[in-house]
Design a protein around this nucleic acid. Structure first.
Lengths: 215, 215
DNA sequence: GTCTATAGCGTGATAGAC
DNA sequence: GTCTATCACGCTATAGAC
């Protein structure tokens, strides 16, 4: 819980004082829904119940806001995933923990992550490069867990660590595209779906494997 | 090959006459790279070697251009996939054919598909609804192939057709996010990777299944 | 920390000659 | 079918009072 200064100035549209965190959350929400360039500072300030010029007390530019959203998004999913796998020793348990933590962060901080995925390209240099490096570092952790699984004989050696990593992140990340928080699927069930597909596939095991690929 | 009118007016920046098809391709390319709102009509016309006002001979508005890109994108992947599965009778063969055709279209018409995925939300009504309906109709075809596979005992019944469809499209579609045409991976290898993961998973088959899920 | 007012620019789109 | 010229608007960001 964020501690207020204790001084209430005037009724906000949402009942809260505008803080840096609140600003980030509102902005991420609007960016996810309309896109970064399609969302004006006018709309942003209206959602917070202040004038647009007042926004510049909290940020230096619109780009700065996007940058902070991207960094926050990646730091959160990385912290969550690292904490989850730190408790587990065996390769399969680590993979399970990673998948669950990744999906839970993805769907909890939905607006942040969706904005990062969709609007990272709108970020100028050098911020863009900095965010990409952060993301690469997180994905290296994911690939590390996969590599351990391969070494332990848990995962196939038919494909490289890179390729398996791409498959896993494909499976997990695209969820932000269609996920709606009010839907019936829980993060747990979605994680279990992806976990099952990634490890065992959707095949029944009869006649789906072998060397008779048509391509 | 598009037939020219035979009359050359002046040297274009890319050596070609501006046609509706060429315009669409150039626009999709720029939209994919910078985003719809971040790409100006100025930049668009510059890539074609004409003045910005001349663009309006080919289109009625910037939104109209995006709409045509989205429709073209979905029609192409649908035609390709329908043609591919029409030749095949058995469920596994149809799934294989669908995956390969989907991935090939995705990577061949890379700019079109990426623009549709990333900037569909920038499209106003009623065009947006029209495109979403087109996409839903295509995804129904995908789900049909999955349903057939389930009926034939080829695919697990542990998850619904909807869920398996989401997993498969997660796996395939996110590829537009990281794919670069000059990379080393061919569409065929990427399709085979996703095909293997979706049907058999990445697990070695020892100790990855069963009821001992940690979630 | 929030306001009013406005600067300065780039945008999508149009008019009309050729 | 392409051009030159221009309009009207919305945008990000700043200045300065309180």
């Amino acid at each position: 819980m964020t501690e207020s200064k204790g001084r209430s100035t005037r009724r906000r549209r949402n009942g809260d004082e505008p803080t840096a965190d609140l600003l980030l959350a509102h902005a991420a929400r609007q960016f996810r829904m309309k896109g970064f360039h399609a969302t004006s500072m006018r709309e942003l300030s209206a959602a917070l119940g202040i004038e647009k010029s007042s926004l510049y007390h909290y940020l230096s530019s619109k780009d700065d806001l996007l940058y902070r959203i991207c960094v926050e998004s990646i730091m959160r999913i990385r912290m969550a995933s690292e904490a989850a796998i730190a408790e587990v020793g065996d390769p399969l348990g680590r993979l399970d923990a990673l998948i669950l933590a990744h999906v839970e962060s993805l769907l909890t901080d939905f607006d942040l992550h969706a904005t990062t995925f969709f609007d990272l390209r709108s970020l100028g240099e050098p911020q863009s490069a900095a965010v990409i490096e952060l993301r690469d570092r997180y994905e290296a952790i994911v690939r590390g867990v996969i590599a351990d699984g391969q070494s332990a004989g848990l995962l196939t050696a038919e494909f490289t660590v890179q390729e398996l990593g791409l498959s896993l992140l494909n499976l997990l990340n695209w969820t932000v595209f269609w996920y709606r928080p009010d839907g019936i699927d829980t993060p747990e069930r979605i994680a279990r779906l992806h976990r099952t597909i990634f490890l065992n596939g959707a095949g029944s095991g009869i006649g789906t494997g072998g060397l008779d690929h048509s391509f």
